[in-house]
């Protein structure tokens, strides 16, 4: 085992994602604790051209190949796993994203290492420990890892991306880019279609979550939005039920919004949702659970029943 920290570089359309820079920021801190160095592995299309932007790493391993498309869940995972096997880092970091999920689980299983998900913070002292968010952000858990090495899947926002843009030696090493036989082949990528309303351009958003309970109740929230001159947005459960179109989704798999006012009704505040709205100027949250994580990012909150609140506010706006 080395004392190094290995980072999986997530990239799309020729750009390294912020999630990667956040990993590099965490990796720099961890390398300080282990006395090792930070290695970044960039695999796939355009990998060589991305190495120059990875100055937060001491060493950059480049496997440049066009054979994986934008991302290949099997190809990237297997190629990264073989690096973990050969380099034996103490800590391996992946983002807790759609890409990182495919890579992290495979790597941990293929190298028989523990995997820790939903990580907010990792420490590599005598033992490897982490703080994680469970139950959609309702609970924070401290964990300890058995053994000397592990893979950590980091939540968005766990460290500032700017902390991972520089600070390393940035030495580039080109490595074998032979792609294994694959049962998964990349076909193509699709960008989202534009919707009837652009929620990223609205001054006020009324956002509804699971607390709205049924499709029939959406009308009441729409009336409030109309009275406010606001657009109606929602968290993922509402979109997945088909109650509102995908273009209204706020969060990790939807859109990031920064309105002047974000009124969150019945949204508990899962990390994936907070990621898309925490930069709003004024966040007002209504939720029946006083311990809902949404109150952690909201500026103002009322703990109560949204079906009591909505008509009261609508009356005041219409009256």
């Amino acid at each position: 085992m080395s004392n190094d920290v290995l980072v999986f570089v997530e990239h799309l359309n020729g750009e390294v994602t912020d999630a990667t820079y956040e990993l590099l920021a965490t990796a720099r801190k961890l390398a300080g604790q282990t006395g090792g160095s930070v290695t970044a592995a960039v695999i796939g299309t355009g990998a060589a051209s991305l190495a120059g932007g990875l100055g937060g790493a001491d060493q950059i391993l480049v496997a440049d190949t066009d054979a994986l498309g934008a991302f290949n869940p099997q190809g990237h995972a297997e190629m990264f796993a073989s690096l973990v096997t050969s380099r034996q880092p103490r800590v391996t970091l992946v983002p807790y994203t759609s890409v990182g999920m495919d890579v992290g689980n495979h790597v941990a299983a293929a190298t028989s290492q523990p995997l820790v998900s939903y990580c907010l913070k990792v420490d590599a002292g005598d033992a490897l420990t982490a703080t994680c968010q469970l139950y959609s952000g309702k609970v924070e858990a401290d964990v300890r890892v058995d053994g000397d090495t592990a893979v950590f899947a980091m939540l968005a926002g766990a460290a500032p991306a700017d902390g991972g843009r520089s600070g390393g030696a940035g030495a580039v090493e080109t490595i074998d880019a032979t792609v294994p036989d694959l049962a998964v082949s990349f076909v193509g990528i699709a960008e989202p279609e534009a919707g009837d309303v652009d929620i990223t351009a609205e001054d006020i958003l009324v956002a509804i979550g699971r607390g709205i309970e049924s499709e029939d109740n959406i009308e009441e929230a729409q009336e409030l939005a109309d009275a406010l001159g606001a657009a109606l947005a929602a968290s993922r459960p509402i979109i997945d039920q088909g109650w509102l179109p995908k273009t209204r989704q706020v969060g990790k798999s939807g859109l990031a919004v920064k309105p002047k006012v974000y009124l969150a009704l019945g949204i508990s505040g899962a990390p994936e949702h907070l990621e898309g709205m925490r930069d709003s100027s004024v966040i007002i949250a209504v939720n029946s659970d006083p311990q809902a994580p949404i109150f952690g990012v909201a500026h103002y909150g009322w703990a109560g029943d949204l079906f009591d609140f909505i008509p009261e506010l609508t009356d005041r706006l219409e009256g």
Partner: peptide, 9 residues
């Protein structure tokens, strides 16, 4: 992937 971007396999 994220932000409504998808890929087919």
């Amino acid at each position: 992937y994220w932000a409504g971007i998808t890929a087919d396999y």
